[in-house]
Design a binder for these strands. Structure first.
Lengths: 142, 142
DNA sequence: AATTCTATTTAGAATGATTCTCATTCCTTA
DNA sequence: TAAGGAATGAGAATCATTCTAAATAGAATT
């Protein structure tokens, strides 16, 4: 089992790799993201962190999220207009955006496909990342 | 050669299909999008339309763009946070976002690949559209 | 342990993009 | 030509995000 302390250590490691400090705010925010992986907005994160840390400010939430993105611990996603959403970054994955419910699902992305997708680029284009977003409706699984 | 009138006619057709009217504002805005396909923002469009139609308001620009999107004549794209960008929708295509220059290039998307990409979806996901965004740098072509 | 230096946080103001409200104008059809 | 709905325009309002400047907290050094 992965303990809370392990996660904090991993976070601390990544932060110090980038010359940054581990702080209670950064830890709590990262934990919130790991706990409920529903692609929350900054305001969502703010609301979830508040009970634990009532004095935290929304500016800090934005700052910390940006920091986590910088450290490659978290990925920022923008579907359509509207607030940026955040997900803790594990494997490469696509996103499926359910237009009825507004929910976002992670779709595992095979390496082979990633290669094929990149291969449609003309030779002078050098892609550092690829993002794939599906939109549609998800039938409830049987 | 495709005349300006032809385009207006096509526009009028699409609009009336959706029970909407063709108006000078909608025509001018659509024309602006067709004339310079550099994925302009609403403000960009506003600036380009003004010389021709000085009384137009930014609210109308937003309204008209939204209308064109509704009629499937135009596609709205959101790279990262920041304003929505608009492109007149021809074939299915991916977008390449040059991180150095901020420019966006259309990348032609073969049907076959589109199918392969869709095939990674579990059976209970029904995608009505797929969006592919590359990020990176484009070397100037030889 | 006290001091210094810098990173981080905070509250609130400011900004940017978009939407809303509602009065006015413009078609369309009766 | 009158009535009714669609579309536009000006400005206010809202939402998401960033900025600013002051307060705090940590780490490193004395």
């Amino acid at each position: 089992m992965v303990s809370n302390t392990d996660l904090s250590d991993a976070l601390a490691q990544r932060l110090s790799d980038s010359g940054l400090r581990s702080t209670p705010q950064r830890e709590v925010i990262y934990n919130v993201l790991l706990t409920k992986r529903d692609h929350p907005t900054a305001e969502d994160v703010f609301a979830r962190v508040k009970p634990e840390m009532p004095m935290i400010s929304i500016a800090t939430v934005y700052n910390c999220l940006e920091t986590l993105v910088q450290c490659n611990l978290v990925r920022a996603v923008n579907f359509e207009r509207g607030p940026t959403r955040y997900c803790p970054n594990l494997h490469p994955h696509a996103h499926f955006h359910d237009e009825q419910t507004g929910a976002t699902h992670d779709i595992d992305l095979p390496d082979s496909l990633l290669g094929q997708v990149k291969s449609i680029l003309p030779p002078n284009f050098d892609a550092s990342s690829v993002e794939i977003i599906f939109r549609g409706k998800a039938r409830p699984a049987a």
